[in-house]
Design a protein around this nucleic acid. Structure first.
Lengths: 322, 322
DNA sequence: CACTGTTTGTACAAGGTCCGTCCAGACTTG
DNA sequence: CAAGTCTGGACGGACCTTGTACAAACAGTG
């Protein structure tokens, strides 16, 4: 279940040469990857995050030695050389919360896989029903610890949030309950986003929602997945006016723009936005995903992202590389 | 966790040439950075603050010698291993001329004192203007590392966000820029919230916003402060319908309810919400804070929280204990 | 006004440190 | 067998340190 990478993969993921990767390890001990029987290095997701953070500091002008010191100070020793999702984040005081995932009334297609060692999908809905903070945190902790962000998000969080949505539709769960859970998931996603870090000369991708469109969770999850793939995400959030999208795209000249269209009701605004962006810069690569654009065909100047958020991030990243 | 900088970094941070940095240290002893084993200088955030202050005074026309004197007088040597122990006396070697002590009283005006180890308040607005992710993260990193959550929030983040708002009003910052920064701040607040944890038999407080009210940052900050004080916060987020507030309060029977009313335009909805909550349970303790309820008086069944978010959290917590 | 001394920002040289990169020879993997 | 990885050492350019030097700006004095 835990994903492992070889030096070369990590090098591609982080933009750090394999030589330098080994030098940083030897000289500063920023990471200490597990080894195979033949002493080949096997990096975990947390190693990658740490290395990205270090690369970022160095790119910001810090000397390698100081950057390393800061990185190890920020994320705790993590001795058990494993893929233990490092609690990361500047403060790691009391309860070690794990890296999160999430998405409430997502409006994106859930993946079709059944849960495994994860908490029951109903647990989230149950916590929502009772506004039970302890249960909510316990459930999210367990889920996040069960695997990589992508796996947990697709296989557990998405279906769990769909379940919450159903409970709301059946009036078993109040709006407060739904907000309560969404906000918690949003916070976990934020942690995952922050934990990801960005490679040095990464392609820039703008991520956000059309005007008058509110539900951020899927967009934030997509942003997190992209960041974990090394993309330099500029996350712009919900309800961004068309004119502002256009001027931001002009200014940033991103490699791509990704628009989340969670609800069918948002389709109109999304279509308008896509049209304006394409008109302002016909060469701009525009991606859109979510229920709101599920029916779009070729007539749109945007590429429609199909499937789960994780899958969409994969497709987008692949598409960027070509 | 103390961040250290090399001469070059400090030079970039302060705009003072490396040569001049060394000259000021040698001639006036304004700073005496710690050294590495190989005698490289390592500056701390407080050194940077002091140097910035000195540069500001010099730019304002003060002679360097007097500026230095003033700076060391303002922030006396920080004893705890931080920095600046008195070097080898403020100069006695070659040109150790001290101007008469009376010189400080005359002529040039001492500028306002900037906060100590924190990044410049403008840094956030600048990052917003350019949608500069690296600068944004670096700035927030430095700020959050500079002190307790409460201090940093009140003394730096709040003014910095106000600055962003001014930039937006002056059309120097786009909506995208504002969203970009808000989303990042939201993520940091989320991390702080998650890091806080909750005591066992803590009082329950519901925190959220009235219907059709969107700006969450203050509410989330309040929630974080309360959690750091041991309160069992049930964070309900933005735009929660009155009926849902009421039913949630019925179900939870919280020790108190805290409502954030960020904008004057939200006053109407907030008043309606307060009325409904009070009617449903006259014994419920209702608190409200933010510009939108600044003018409320006694006629409201809600207690108005005055002052900063941190102050409000303090007042609320004290009020709970009675 | 000319003369003299002080202040202060800048420049440079000689020498040490840091760190990204390159390499060689041996082993592993597919 | 080709491609990938391992270890340790070595090289060179960027960076830092100390010390000295110098010119512009300014003040006081005869």
């Amino acid at each position: 279940m835990p994903v492992r990478y070889t030096v070369k993969q990590v090098s591609q993921l982080t933009g750090i040469s394999t030589d330098l990767l080994r030098a940083w390890e030897r000289r500063y001990g920023v990471v200490s990857p597990r080894r195979t029987a033949s002493r080949y290095r096997l990096y975990g997701d947390d190693d990658v995050a740490r290395l990205r953070r270090m690369a970022e500091l160095v790119a910001g002008g810090a000397p390698a030695s100081l950057a390393a010191e800061q990185v190890v100070a920020e994320s705790p020793p993590d001795l058990d050389g494993g893929t233990t999702a490092s609690p990361d984040g500047p403060q790691t005081s009391g309860n070690g919360h794990r890296t999160p995932a999430g998405g409430a009334e997502l409006g994106w297609t859930p993946a079709a896989l059944p849960p495994s060692a994860l908490p029951p999908v109903d647990a989230l809905a149950e916590a929502a029903r009772n506004l039970d903070r302890a249960a909510l945190e316990r459930t999210l902790d367990r889920a996040m610890a069960a695997g990589s962000f992508e796996t947990v998000f697709d296989e557990w969080l998405t279906p769990a949030l769909v379940r919450v949505g159903e409970g709301w539709a059946a009036e078993e769960i109040s709006v407060a309950g739904e907000h309560f859970v969404s906000a918690a998931v949003h916070r976990r996603l934020s942690q995952a986003f922050e934990a990801a870090g960005t490679a040095v000369n990464a392609p820039v991708v703008m991520v956000g929602l059309p005007p008058r469109t509110m539900h951020e969770l899927a967009a934030l999850a997509l942003a997190t997945c992209l960041r974990r793939r090394g993309v330099d995400v500029r996350y712009l959030g919900a309800d961004l006016p068309v004119a502002s999208w256009v001027s931001a795209a002009r200014r940033l000249e991103p490699a791509a723009v990704a628009i989340s269209v969670p609800r069918p009701a948002d389709e109109q605004a999304a279509a308008e936005l896509v049209r304006a962006l394409a008109e302002a810069d016909p060469t701009l690569r525009i991606f859109a995903g979510g229920r709101g654009c599920a029916g779009w065909g070729e007539e749109q100047p945007a590429t429609v992202l199909q499937g789960s958020v994780t899958r969409s991030a994969h497709d987008l990243a692949v598409s960027l590389a070509t």
